[in-house]
């Protein structure tokens, strides 16, 4: 069962702009403070959303981050502070280590934010957004989203049936795909008829969406846009190569970045809890 999420009840466009801005921020700003906030925000939100099943993506992103850091340390030899020399004579520099860690952390942030995005931004949100642009496009997407799992489940079934009947083998496996594809094409013809019978192709199609863009969504949208702008412009930035240099931490930017990264977790843990307690 999925957990109740305070952030999810906003309109998909709000979700989208939030994830877009927070991911881009973690991608372009490698300052340790921003990275720390990014990691804390994505990590806590994913943990909140998925509970124990958050372990796998966490582990995966940690390993990827470490891999990226190691890669940078091994192959990037720029930097002013030399710590030691590799066997082939290349230097190991302090800057390449810190830069590697920052890059790894940025990568981990992106992966974790995408893991959250996957939970929150369900297919119906995608359909709703594309429906705004073009109703026909949203139909195309919904058909695809319906078709793929249907095809795969039929394929699995047929593969089992044919393996039991004919035995294993590569050629037989290919034949299975052929058989299922023929069946699926047959049913696609029927589905096409059904869709035409239900008004696909008539002029002036509209797109229905179960989500409404309310005042609170407008406010949330504006708030997130403001935070993102402040964070992009004012959050401290850092250079790693050739020498580590960083701007002073400026309170407004720092606060905006922290608030942006911790927004969903904060909404759930603080605002949500207060609200629920109040409701009781």
């Amino acid at each position: 069962m999925k957990r109740y999420d305070e952030f999810e009840i906003y309109h998909p466009i709000v979700n989208l702009i939030y994830f877009a801005s927070v991911i881009v921020l973690c991608m372009v700003n490698l300052h340790p403070y921003v990275q720390f906030m990014g990691l804390a925000g994505s990590f806590s939100y994913l943990l909140y959303l998925r509970g124990r099943s958050a372990f796998k993506p966490l582990l995966f992103s940690f390993i990827t981050a470490m891999g990226a850091a190691a890669f940078n340390i091994l192959f990037n030899h720029r930097g002013a502070t030399i710590l030691a020399y590799f066997r082939n004579g290349n230097p190991l520099t302090l800057e390449s280590v810190t830069h590697g860690l920052a890059l790894g952390s940025s990568l981990a942030c992106i992966l974790l934010w995408f893991a959250c995005f996957n939970v929150v931004f369900t297919s119906d949100r995608l359909i709703c957004l594309t429906g705004r642009i073009s109703p026909t496009l949203s139909v195309l997407i919904t058909i695809t989203l319906r078709f793929v799992p249907l095809y795969l489940s039929r394929l699995r079934r047929a593969a089992t049936d044919r393996r039991l009947f004919y035995g294993r083998g590569l050629r037989r496996g290919l034949k299975t795909i052929e058989t299922v594809s023929a069946q699926v094409l047959e049913s696609a013809i029927e589905t096409a008829d059904v869709m035409r019978g239900r008004g696909l192709g008539l002029k002036g199609r509209t797109a229905f969406s179960p989500f409404k863009f309310r005042l609170r969504d407008v406010i949330a949208f504006a708030f997130i846009a403001l935070l993102a702008a402040l964070a992009f412009l004012l959050a401290p930035k850092a250079e790693y190569l050739p020498v580590y240099t960083s701007e002073n931490i400026e309170p407004t930017g720092a606060f905006a970045a922290a608030l942006l990264a911790l927004l969903p977790t904060g909404l759930n843990l603080i605002y949500g809890e207060i609200k629920w307690r109040h409701l009781k």
Binding site: D124, T142, R146, T191, F208
Partner: peptide
């Protein structure tokens, strides 16, 4: 074959 969409509401 009658169901064409991903979600029930659609």
């Amino acid at each position: 074959n009658q169901l064409v969409c991903d979600r029930v509401w659609h």
